[in-house]
């Protein structure tokens, strides 16, 4: 975020990629794409490509992290070396670790961890191609993967970012806008209640701008949440009246 406020990112109400200020990039979501993982989700958000997988509940390792009252939630956000312009060395860097932490914290009160004492629920997000907004794409995919794995939760968490570009509040900034934008506000919410579970800000926003950005980001979240729910339903669409399914 260079914050220089380049003034040719929005021209005649249109952004460089043709979007209106309140428009989302196209999002595609597929549930259940990996064989080995208990639950998984492949998600494309604009040029972002992320793959999330969930294992669990399973044995909690290392053993000293076992909690007798609830499962431990592990969230690991990782970028493939070829996902960004300048090749990224494999392994967690400080940015990835921070994203992992705030993403885990967004999910901790949503997943019914108390159902699985002493166990671990492991969430892994791999960014295959990055174009700004990867933490939101990753958390959005992770929620679908958790549901796909059958992990009980209060709701499907969704994330989306708003930003300030060219002195205007816009929804879902892409990489070019992120590089020369003035502020970036990623959030994650619980759709049922609108509770904000993740929120970060880079840049400067006046109070009115902050309010507008929050509002836009929530709208974006609700739109993406529809897609998450559809993706899960679609996976099991072959279901008809499973009359023989008895307990």
């Amino acid at each position: 975020m260079s914050g220089k406020g380049k003034t040719d990112l929005i021209v005649n109400g249109k952004r460089l990629d043709g979007r209106k200020p309140e428009e989302l990039r196209p999002v595609k979501i597929q549930a259940g794409v990996l064989k080995r993982a208990d639950g998984s989700c492949y998600l494309e958000w604009g040029e972002n490509k992320v793959l999330a997988a969930v294992f669990g509940p399973r044995e909690c390792l290392p053993k000293h992290e076992q909690d007798p009252y609830r499962a431990r939630l592990l969230y690991r956000y990782n970028m493939a070396p070829f996902s960004v312009e300048d090749r990224k060395r494999p392994g967690p860097d400080r940015r990835s670790q921070e994203i992992s932490k705030v993403s885990r914290e967004a999910l901790e009160r949503v997943v019914f961890l108390e159902n699985f004492p002493k166990a671990s629920i492991d969430v892994f997000v791999e960014v295959l191609q990055a174009d700004a907004g990867t933490r939101c794409a990753g958390l959005t995919a992770a929620s679908v993967a958790l549901a796909d794995a059958g992990i009980p939760m209060r709701d499907i968490v969704v994330a989306c970012a708003a930003g300030k570009v060219d002195n205007e509040i816009v929804l879902d900034v892409n990489k070019i806008e992120d590089n020369d934008g003035q502020a970036d506000l990623p959030i994650a919410i619980l759709p049922r209640t609108g509770e904000v579970l993740l929120m970060q800000l880079d840049g400067i926003l006046a109070p009115e701008e902050y309010k507008r950005a929050l509002q836009l980001a929530v709208e974006g979240c609700m739109k993406v949440n529809e897609l998450q729910r559809n993706a899960l339903r679609e996976k099991y669409e072959k279901l008809a009246d499973a009359g023989e399914q008895k307990e």
Binding site: L34, K35, E47, K49, A80, P81, F82, S83, E85, D86, R87, L128, Q129, A130, D131
Partner: peptide, 26 residues
């Protein structure tokens, strides 16, 4: 060309094994 932003890439599905390879230049 699965990762279009990388200089080269290819995603493979060999049976159920799935691997993504990326090529970067510097």
């Amino acid at each position: 060309d699965f990762v279009r932003k990388a200089e080269g890439s290819c995603f493979i599905k060999l049976g159920n094994t799935q691997v993504l390879v990326g090529v970067k230049f510097a």
